[in-house]
């Protein structure tokens, strides 16, 4: 009985590979597409290990997220959270098929306790690298985990009623960006991340201390490949 089952399994494997390689039978086998939209050559299986995008090195993507930043640490008492957003622009891989490279830009705002109309407006910009790994699912319904690191800068100013022109201050900025991507279709994914952003200045302000800010920013967004 076992030998019969083994034989059937072997025959099935052979048959599928034979079908895949026989040019006369090619139209009967539908090529699979990966999450990134590129067709996988017949006879190959979609990638399942680290670097889920290695077959889509020429693909680009745009990701738009809504964010709700929350200041961390003792400084949290000085700020209230407001909705913000981030946009990410993924470029074709140039370092490795296993490493995503993308640029980020966005906006976060923080109010002050007490219901005042004062808002600290922050505009960060990053250049990022990320590692990703497909966790489960077929090529079209995959869940991808990723973790990225970004470096860049941020502009910020204090917005208050009556302000004619903003006094912009620049900061150095870094971020650590872990998250997940859930494939909805061949070209569209839903993303969720929990980046932590670090802003720090070099000059001592009126307080005599160099300014810094650390905040967690849960995000939810959509990613489109093209």
């Amino acid at each position: 009985m076992i030998s019969i089952l083994f034989a059937l399994l072997s025959f099935g494997t052979f048959a599928s590979s034979a079908l895949a390689q026989d040019p006369d039978l090619q139209p009967l086998v539908t090529p699979k597409k990966t999450l990134s939209g590129k067709k996988v050559p017949l006879g190959d299986t979609p990638d399942t290990g680290v670097g889920a995008q290695e077959e889509s090195s020429e693909k680009m993507a745009v990701e738009i997220e809504g964010a709700f930043p929350v200041v961390l640490g003792v400084k949290a008492q000085n700020y209230t959270s407001q909705l913000g957003g981030m946009a990410h622009f993924y470029l074709p891989h140039f370092i490795s098929p296993f490493v995503d490279n993308y640029f980020s830009a966005g906006y976060q705002g923080f109010g002050l306790p007490g219901g005042s109309n004062i808002t600290v407006r922050i505009f960060p910009i990053f250049a990022n690298l990320a590692l990703s790994s497909r966790l489960s699912g077929s090529s079209d319904r995959s869940m991808i985990a990723s973790i990225g690191v970004g470096v860049g800068g941020a502009l910020a100013y204090l917005d208050t009623p009556g302000l004619v022109a903003p006094n912009l201050t620049g900061y150095f900025a870094t971020q650590i960006r872990p998250g997940f991507e859930f494939g909805v279709s061949e070209m569209v994914s839903i993303t969720a991340h929990t980046p932590v952003l670090f802003l720090f200045g070099m000059n001592n302000g009126s307080t005599g201390r160099a300014s810094s800010l650390i905040y967690l920013m849960p995000t939810l967004g959509a990613k489109v490949y093209f």
């Binding site: 910020a156 100013y157 006094n167 912009l168 900061y171 000059n203 302000g205 300014s211």
Partner: peptide, 19 residues
Amino acid sequence: GTLGCGSQNQVDPLSLGET
């Protein structure tokens, strides 16, 4: 580096959180 622009008095908006 950190640089304030636009005012004769350099403004650091994150300084509100430093103290």
